[in-house]
């Protein structure tokens, strides 16, 4: 009797101990927490978790690739329970550090890695891009649709390939103008160049531009406001940034995924392996709120929701750059 009571008390103590003290470290990509896009989404998810679940959150922003390993190691050494890395660039760092600290849990967004204490959070960006491509084609009166990417890397190719397929699905005759902002990491933080590209696309007759370029996206929003055209945001819901000029945003719910992994860790339900977020679990989606419900008409919405359903049911196959590029 006493024994079981003691056991009960220790379990209770242990539980309350672990609940009160879950320490979560968040390592953001070079873009930083204010990119209003990818990293912002992760940061918001973690902040929400910190508020709702009363965890201890600490975030850092990486200075360069080689600093990443250092940051993960620091978190692990300071006995953080869960360390979340945002962005594919952190794959190597987590691979190395997770081996040295098997007791620590890690989560990696956008990177694939098999280890017993790492959960990978991947998103089906091509599906979401397909949807916003369809929206762009439905809304645009001209046959020219624009795409602006940050750097010409496989991840962004995945966006563009899905987007192009979505446009062609609605309007097979449409022509897609595709531009990339730069060839160095600075491409993600160069709104001025993004604006120039958007202006030149608009001059050539483009009416809707999808921009997947992190913090550079704001330049495109400036351009469409100036010329009274439309843009499509990316990752976070960016509709609020220029209400009336942002048709919708391709949501990549990094915040949901980050929140979920924190919640799971808290409830001792952390599992390793790959978790994919797609249209069916709203991991990717298009954004609808009070800022765009006038421009994104009910007619377009019903058509897009129909397409969405078909993709989930497997009636429409969205081309995936990751699969087509592998020989």
């Amino acid at each position: 009797m006493i024994r079981s009571l003691l056991l009960f008390i220790t379990i209770l103590l242990f539980n309350s101990f672990s609940i009160a003290n879950l320490k979560v470290g968040l390592v953001l990509d070079k873009g930083g927490k204010d990119d209003k896009s990818f990293n912002s989404a992760a940061y918001e998810g973690a902040q929400k978790a910190a508020k709702d679940l009363k965890i201890e959150l600490k975030y850092v922003e990486a200075t360069d690739i080689n600093a990443l390993e250092n940051l993960h190691r620091q978190f692990a050494q300071k006995k953080y329970d869960l360390v979340i890395g945002i962005g594919f660039a952190q794959t190597e760092a987590i691979k190395k550090v997770s081996k040295q600290f098997p007791q620590t849990h890690f989560a990696l967004v956008d990177g694939e890695l098999l280890a017993p204490n790492v959960r990978c959070l991947l998103f089906e960006e091509h599906q979401g891009s397909f949807l916003v491509g369809a929206i762009a084609a439905l809304k645009s009166k001209s046959n020219k649709i624009g795409f602006i990417g940050g750097m010409d890397i496989p991840l962004i190719r995945r966006f563009s390939m899905g987007y192009v397929a979505g446009v062609k699905h609605v309007n097979p005759k449409a022509q897609i103008v595709e531009n990339y902002i730069g060839v160095t990491g600075e491409a993600w933080t160069n709104p001025a160049k993004a604006k120039e590209l958007a202006l030149s696309q608009i001059a050539s007759g483009v009416e809707v531009i999808f921009v997947a370029a992190g913090a550079s996206g704001s330049g495109v929003f400036d351009a469409v406001e100036e010329k009274k055209k439309l843009a499509i945001g990316v990752d976070s819901n960016q509709n609020w940034m220029r209400p009336g000029f942002i048709l919708t945003s391709m949501l990549k719910r990094v915040d949901l995924a980050v929140y979920k992994v924190i919640e799971d860790s808290l409830n001792n339900k952390f599992t390793s392996g790959v978790v994919r977020y797609g249209l069916n679990d709203k991991g990717v989606d298009y954004a609808l709120d009070q800022h765009n419900d006038k421009i994104l008409t009910a007619d377009i919405r019903s058509k897009v929701d129909d397409i969405k359903k078909k993709i989930i049911d497997g009636k429409i196959q969205v081309p995936d750059y990751y699969k087509t590029s592998k020989k």
Binding site: F88, A89, T91, G111, E112, M151, D152, I153, P154, L155, R158, V183, T184, Y322, S325, K326, K327
Partner: peptide
């Protein structure tokens, strides 16, 4: 410098990319 960055990105991504990874 910019030409070099462009050239290296192109060669790395199109000619000798890592077949086991989608990272640049």
């Amino acid at each position: 410098n910019l030409i070099a960055a462009g050239l290296t990105s192109w060669v790395i991504l199109k000619v000798i990319p890592n077949p086991d990874s989608q990272n640049p």
